[in-house]
Design a protein around this nucleic acid. Structure first.
Length: 425
RNA sequence: GGAGAGGUGGCUGAGUGGCCGAAAGCGGCGGUCUUGAAAACCGUUGAAGGUUUAUCCCUUCCAAGAGUUCGAAUCUCUUCCUCUCCGCCA
């Protein structure tokens, strides 16, 4: 949610900013609503005040044993008038909220113009793409060859876009998760965090998935409204919902492994083959809660933490700054890390690191108390994948394959694989 | 799932229709005292919004929502949550 104050002080700037996202914001309509809101709020509060004063005087009169009838005569139609004003005010506030909560975050000044992923800016590349002097296989062929990846059975048990992993392939994914968690905890200073994988609607509202993106979620209960998490970002960030944090407790740095569930509505026909786009996948998520003036630096650091995993795994990747049209709804600025996948001859997203500034915090009512003013201030929230484990598994298989179809295990994972150095066919 | 008890400010905890946004204690902040600190004492201390140059003032908020009433933390209904006991169970 954007700052309502901004809408009252510089609404034209809001419009200009939203235009970068190709969002048409109707200033005229909003201004009209705001004008009516103010008038009716003032009227409502005046009526409420009148009611309070009269009611209070009845209480005082009764206490003194005076006749209250003259006071009751003054009330007249006040109640009905007040009720009507309150209803109208509530309606206008609901209309304005509906507009506000559908608006995306304002982009950082450094975000380049552009309408889709083709206009993202590559900032850097790391590592060498492996050279193969044989006909390479993609991760599906490799997984099947090792009898460790079974999409047919996944479809039988559930539906398309689910998979069964077995044997060393399954273990390799688990090794990746453990390695990522340990690295973030021991080297990058994150707190290990375990959370519910089912969340309520308030939590999804807080991080911005609801009300706009309900179609992407799996709903598991209607009463109460409960959903499977699309990412650990939701439960982890919601730890600070409705909280006023002490200054010395910040920054909060949390790392959490979880399964993620996405309905992938609107992704029909995309990445139908393999593990790239599943309804259920494993991810290690980094979340930071920081003071406002620290979030940009934290964003760089968090991204570097994710990059460090790729570097330790020896996977070639590039860092991309998302353009205006590709940056997510709640984000001011997003770096994507794209890993090299030989099977696709392409870089593919494996991590997305975003700075939400106060956008989520405003929805979450997540604040910290500034000792200098004594007043609560909104925190800034950030998160990033560190990394998506399913896609990392894909990258390991494809980048570390040999002519015979064996998979060499990167040094840092070997201890997590019981000392194994290569997964043989 | 069955039975019962509850949800009040940063925390503990009073308050069962009328100066209650809420006693008291703890904590926090400021001060007195002290070489300094502690103790003691005094004062102060919730959030959101409106109006305002600012102060003042006003509105809303006692789990959430609806209702009764001139007036609700307090009465009624619904929902959610927590705790205790029983049952079931990884």
């Amino acid at each position: 949610m954007l700052d309502p104050h901004l809408f009252r002080t510089d609404i034209d700037a809001v419009q200009v900013q939203l235009k970068r996202r190709a969002v048409e914001f109707d200033v005229e309509r909003y201004t009209q609503l705001e004008k009516r809101r103010k008038a009716i709020q003032v009227k409502t509060q005046a009526l409420q005040n009148e009611k309070n004063v009269i009611s209070k005087s009845i209480g005082q009169a009764k206490a003194k044993g005076e006749d209250t009838q003259p006071i009751f005569d003054k009330i007249g139609g006040l109640g009905d008038e007040l009720k009507a004003a309150e209803v109208e005010l509530a309606q206008i506030q609901a209309d304005m909220l509906a507009i506000m909560e559908a608006l995306p975050n304002i982009l950082d000044a450094s975000v380049p113009a552009g309408k889709d992923e083709d206009e993202n800016i590559e900032l850097s590349q790391w590592g060498e793409k492996p050279q193969f002097d044989f006909e390479i296989k993609d991760h599906v062929d490799l997984g099947v060859l090792h009898q460790g990846m079974d999409f047919e059975t996944g479809a039988k048990i559930t539906s398309a876009r689910f998979v069964v992993l077995k044997g060393q392939i399954a273990r390799l994914q688990r090794a990746l998760i453990q390695f990522m968690l340990d690295t973030h905890i021991d080297e990058h200073g994150y707190d290990e965090t375990y959370v519910p994988f089912i969340v309520n609607a308030d939590s999804l509202y807080g991080t911005g998935q609801l009300p706009k993106f309900a179609d992407d979620l799996f709903k598991v209960s209607a009463e109460p409204d409960l959903y499977l998490i699309p990412t650990a970002e939701v439960p982890v960030t919601n730890i600070v919902r409705d909280e006023i944090l002490e200054a010395d407790s910040l920054p909060l740095k949390m790392v959490c492994h979880s399964p993620c569930f996405r309905s992938e509505a609107g992704a029909y026909g995309r990445d139908v083959r393999g593990l790239i786009r599943q309804h259920q996948f494993e991810k290690v998520e980094l979340v930071q809660i920081v003071k406002a003036d620290e979030s940009e630096q934290a964003h760089e650091a968090l991204t570097a933490d994710a990059e460090n995993i790729l570097q330790k795994l020896g996977l070639a990747y590039r860092k991309v700054l998302l353009c205006a049209g590709d940056t997510g709804f709640s984000s001011t600025k997003t770096y994507d890390l794209e890993v090299w996948l030989p099977g696709q001859d392409k870089f593919r997203e494996i991590s997305s690191c975003s700075n939400f500034k106060d956008f989520q915090a405003r929805r979450l009512k997540a604040r910290w108390r500034n000792p200098e003013t004594g007043k609560p201030e909104l925190v800034h929230t950030l998160n990033g994948s560190g990394l998506a484990a399913g896609r990392t598994l894909v990258a390991i298989l494809e980048n570390y394959q040999t002519v015979s179809g064996d998979i060499e295990i990167p040094k840092v994972l070997q201890s997590y694989m019981g000392g194994l150095t290569v997964i043989k066919v």
